[in-house]
């Protein structure tokens, strides 16, 4: 729902410089999206939480003298105290330092996987949808194939290969196996956008396919891509911690929230600090990411269920 121009005397930018009014237009839409987003109290809280979590994960370690792999021989399994804010583990590691290290890992992995996998999904989905024919059939067959086995299982099988290697391999694998559903959605959108009149108009004036994809198709599904990227961030964090829980993910001596929870579960009743902080922060992280995703959906995609669905007016 956008206002149409009723006042012909506004804006008098010189036609030679499209930059100025361009900003005006963007900010108009931007303001609307922002206003819709801000209406979601839960999403706003989620966004604040994410910022706070990032700050905690990356600035927190500056305030504690303990490193995440360092052991305090004077404190084994000590409860939270002034020395060790989150207590210590069986071998005297500082749980606060470890939890922050794990949080860093989860946040970074989530973000990277979200970006990479959405990029793959966008490329594969638009190519399949726009070109159709055998390109479509081949790509969709690959999607079907990868959807037949849950990503978790494939990465678990591959886990011996990156044992002792950098966790970045894990990022690549997570991204490589979490783009399929988004790609399907992107393909569906491309199929309908391809028949839209503005795309036809571009095609009939001779604009080449790749340029149509970049200029018309991708920008028009940007909102869906952003929303899906957010969802993927949450899923990636969950998958990573799940893998780490079984020892298939981040490898010691490095830690992740998943390995911390796995170590803590067995003694969770007697030494709850081993488990509660990492578990709590993990849930808080994913919850924040998901609620931001939900808020973005309503703000960016007004046709979604909760936006302003009903047309008021005539």
């Amino acid at each position: 729902m956008s206002a149409s121009i009723t006042d012909p005397h506004s804006t008098a930018a010189s036609p030679g410089s499209p930059a100025q009014p361009l900003i005006e237009g963007r900010s108009g839409r931007g303001r609307l999206v922002l206003r819709r987003f801000l209406r979601h109290r839960l999403s706003v809280i989620g966004l604040v939480c994410i910022v706070a979590l990032y700050a905690l994960a990356f600035l927190g370690p500056l305030f504690t003298p303990w490193g995440y792999a360092e052991q305090d021989p004077t404190a084994y399994l000590s409860p939270p105290s002034a020395q060790h804010w989150f207590g210590t583990s069986q071998i005297g590691e500082d749980v606060f330092a470890q939890t922050l290290r794990g949080l860093q890992k989860s946040l970074t992995i989530g973000l990277l996987v979200g970006i990479i996998s959405t990029t793959i999904a966008a490329v594969v989905g638009t190519a399949a949808g726009y070109f159709g024919g055998w390109v479509d059939r081949a790509l969709m067959w690959v999607v079907d194939l990868l959807l037949v086995i849950p990503a978790f299982l494939i990465i678990a099988i591959l886990s011996p290969a990156f044992r002792g290697k950098t966790w970045l391999i894990l990022v690549v694998l997570l991204a490589a196996f979490s783009w399929m559903i988004t790609a399907r959605i992107v393909r569906g959108l491309t199929l309908s956008l391809r028949e839209r009149e503005f795309v036809l108009a571009a095609r009939f004036t001779g604009v080449p396919p790749w340029r149509i994809i970049v200029r018309h198709i991708l920008p028009n599904m940007a909102s869906i891509l952003i929303i899906d990227a957010t969802i993927t961030v949450g899923t990636a964090i969950l998958t990573e911690t799940g893998l780490s829980f079984f020892g298939f993910g981040v490898q010691p001596p490095d830690v992740s929230l998943g390995t911390l929870i796995a170590n803590g579960t067995n003694s969770a009743l007697t030494f709850p600090w081993l488990f509660l902080f990492s578990g709590g922060l993990l849930v808080l992280t994913v919850l924040s990411v998901n609620s931001v995703g939900d808020g973005l959906r309503d703000a960016l995609d007004p046709t979604s269920a909760r936006g302003s669905r009903r047309r008021s007016g005539d």
């Binding site: 969950l238 911690t241 799940g242 579960t265 578990g279 993990l282 849930v283 994913v286």
Partner: peptide
């Protein structure tokens, strides 16, 4: 539903286990 969807199954399982206990 947001809370459940944001909590990994292993955490839900573990919590249920302790709840049962």
């Amino acid at each position: 539903s947001f809370l459940v969807l944001s909590t990994p199954v292993f955490l839900i399982g573990t919590l249920l286990k302790f709840g049962g206990l």
